[in-house]
């Protein structure tokens, strides 16, 4: 049985199809054979935060075959396609009309031969490359401002702060410094590329590789700032155990990594 999800401005079949997938107030699930439907509100439609991903999760949980909407972001499109849902964008009119037209289209496809020319395959390939480049550009745009800020901050630290300040925090006791490195990494958050740049600078100030390694491992695996979000999503027990365990592991990984490199002669203690 075919199941179609339509983003809608209202909770019934006469409602208009929403212009944007992510901010749609409702998602309506329709059986096109009988036109029976179920409307689910989008709880985050009003504030926009993670609203799109909520609808993606809803569509996945309802095991939908196709999604009809106005505009769909590349991220949401990626998730929906990955779960083998056909996503039709640019859909307008009422929910009932959209479902009927789509149903007719599917029936015609099933009767005829689904033939793809070489030209259309090449066009699809080009579109995929452009989409991949666009996604990379978006990821890069999100990454660069903070990276630029971190590098500018390091420049200031180098010029205005004496190394005494840093050596006052990291005093040269490998175990204690490793612990401190793990604490710093757990508190700070952001793209790991920033932890590598900061870690590289820490090494230049003669801070031990133990501390630097604990810092860059805990930066990604332990998240004090994100803890409330992790508790909300995966439960208090899971989040607390995971973060505590990874804090200890970041120290263990740091010590093991540096000791192994020391044995192979890659680093000197």
């Amino acid at each position: 049985m075919l199941k179609i999800a339509v983003t809608a401005d209202g909770p019934n079949l006469d409602a208009r199809v929403s212009h944007r997938f992510g901010t749609s107030p409702y998602m309506i699930f329709v059986d096109p054979e009988t036109m029976t439907f179920e409307a689910k509100p989008n709880p985050r439609a009003a504030n926009g935060s993670a609203a799109g991903i909520q609808l993606v999760v809803l569509a996945i949980s309802k095991k939908v075959d196709a999604v009809l909407t106005g505009f769909c972001s590349p991220t949401a499109l990626g998730y929906l396609s990955a779960h083998e849902m056909k996503v039709n964008t640019g859909v307008t009119g009422t929910v009932a009309d959209a479902v009927e037209q789509y149903h007719i289209h599917i029936q015609q496809q099933q009767k005829g031969v689904n033939f793809k020319s070489d030209y259309s395959k090449r066009a699809a390939g080009r579109a995929a490359v452009v989409q991949a480049l666009n996604n990379s550009a978006n990821q890069f745009t999100a990454l660069l401002p903070t990276l630029v800020g971190v590098v500018l901050l390091i420049g200031l630290f180098n010029a205005f702060l004496s190394t005494k300040l840093i050596t006052a925090i990291f005093k040269g006791n490998p175990l204690l410094d490793t612990f401190k490195g793990a604490v710093f990494g757990s508190v700070f958050t952001g793209n790991p590329i920033n932890s590598y740049i900061i870690g590289g600078q820490m090494l230049e100030h003669d801070i031990s590789l133990f501390a630097v390694t604990a810092f860059i491992v805990s930066w990604v695996t332990v998240g004090i700032v994100q803890l409330p979000a992790e508790i909300a999503a995966l439960g208090k027990k899971f989040a607390l155990i995971r973060n505590s365990l990874y804090f200890i592991l970041s120290i263990a990984i740091a010590i093991t990594t540096v000791l192994v490199l020391g044995l192979t002669g890659e680093v000197n203690f």
Binding site: P192, I193, Y196, V267
Partner: peptide
């Protein structure tokens, strides 16, 4: 846990720490 491994950022990591370190870590 495996989100700590970032293949995309390996070029930057190698620049700062060397490939042996990246491999072992």
């Amino acid at each position: 846990g495996n989100r700590a491994v970032k293949p995309l950022l390996i070029p930057v990591m190698i620049t700062y720490f060397g490939w042996e370190y990246v491999l072992v870590l």
